[in-house]
């Protein structure tokens, strides 16, 4: 199995994650910029963080044969400080030139406050002006429904190519509105919150897997990169073929992320040397 982990916060994980992911078939990860577990005070702290995920993390992942890519952004929680956020945004275009930076993300909303919306709009504008991919975080738990609706309203005000926009952390009550808007969408698998591996497979079966990305995420809180493999296991257990699993868990991330030519992994097609083997899932 070849797997792309499209949303992975390596900065908050130990190297053991890379070892286990490599052993389980992960060939590439993409790391969005996110909250550090505390609110940062200085633009320079963000800049060093962007350097860490764009310069250092690729070397750590490479020790296990995993390609590491990243995104840069001010996350919604810290967007409550507009002056700080705008100082960081001013430096982001320098990072768009780095060889592993894929776009602007994760931006979006957390509590859907006025400040968050102002900085979200500024980052969407930045992505459009620099022709970058855009990764949008939707809020957690009780705030998700309202926040997702607000995000879609904000995006409507921009001349965006929906192919380049990924709305992440959708669940059963937000999936249809994101699909109807034409964006890529993501399921994020957690032990307790967001989506479970089985519910993700339910949604794949119900809504199809076009324009859909699945990630375990992995951050400071209770989270587990292996939930992605639990999802693949359940997908296969329900009778879906190996090629179908590769379409969902490898080729779809390649299709979306590969719109940035820096993400240069190939699409994979399973072939067998003996006739008949493909009939068995």
């Amino acid at each position: 199995m070849f797997i792309v982990q499209p949303h992975y916060h390596a900065i908050s994980r130990t190297t053991q994650d890379y070892e286990r992911m490599a052993a389980a078939g992960v060939v590439a990860v993409a790391e969005p910029a996110f909250w550090a577990g505390f609110d940062r005070l200085y633009p320079e702290t963000f800049i060093d963080y962007f350097r860490q995920i764009s310069e250092f993390e690729p070397t750590r992942a490479a020790q296990y044969g995993i390609r590491h890519f990243c995104w840069v952004a001010v996350n919604p929680k810290e967007a409550e400080n507009p002056a700080l956020s705008r100082a960081v945004l001013a430096k982001m275009p320098e990072f768009f030139e780095k060889p592993t930076v894929l776009g602007v993300g994760e931006t979006g909303l957390h509590k859907s406050t006025r400040n968050e919306i102002e900085i979200f709009e500024a980052q969407v504008d930045l992505a459009v002006r620099h022709d970058q991919l855009l990764l949008v975080h939707t809020p957690h738990l009780a705030d998700k429904l309202y926040g997702t609706k607000r995000i879609l309203e904000v995006l409507k005000n921009f001349r965006l190519n929906p192919d380049k926009v990924w709305i992440d952390h959708v669940e059963e009550h937000t999936i249809r509105m994101v699909k109807e808007a034409g964006y890529w969408l993501g399921f994020t698998l957690y032990p307790i919150t967001k989506c479970s591996p089985r519910r993700a497979v339910d949604m794949l079966e119900r809504y199809g897997w076009e324009r859909t990305l699945i990630n375990s995420s992995a951050d400071w809180g209770p989270s587990d990169p292996a939930t992605l493999h639990d999802c693949i296991f359940d997908f296969r257990r329900r009778g879906h073929t190996l090629q179908e699993a590769i379409e969902v868990f490898h080729n779809n991330p390649v299709r979306y992320l590969g719109q940035n030519p820096k993400f240069d992994l190939p699409l994979i097609q399973v072939e067998t040397r003996e006739a008949g083997l493909l009939a068995s899932p």
């Binding site: 705030d143 998700k144 309202y146 009550h173």
Partner: peptide, 16 residues
């Protein structure tokens, strides 16, 4: 019915 999960998520949703 096939929308129990969606209905529960709506039940647990809040407006700010």
């Amino acid at each position: 019915r096939d929308d129990r999960t969606e209905q529960l998520l709506l039940h647990f949703s809040e407006e700010p």
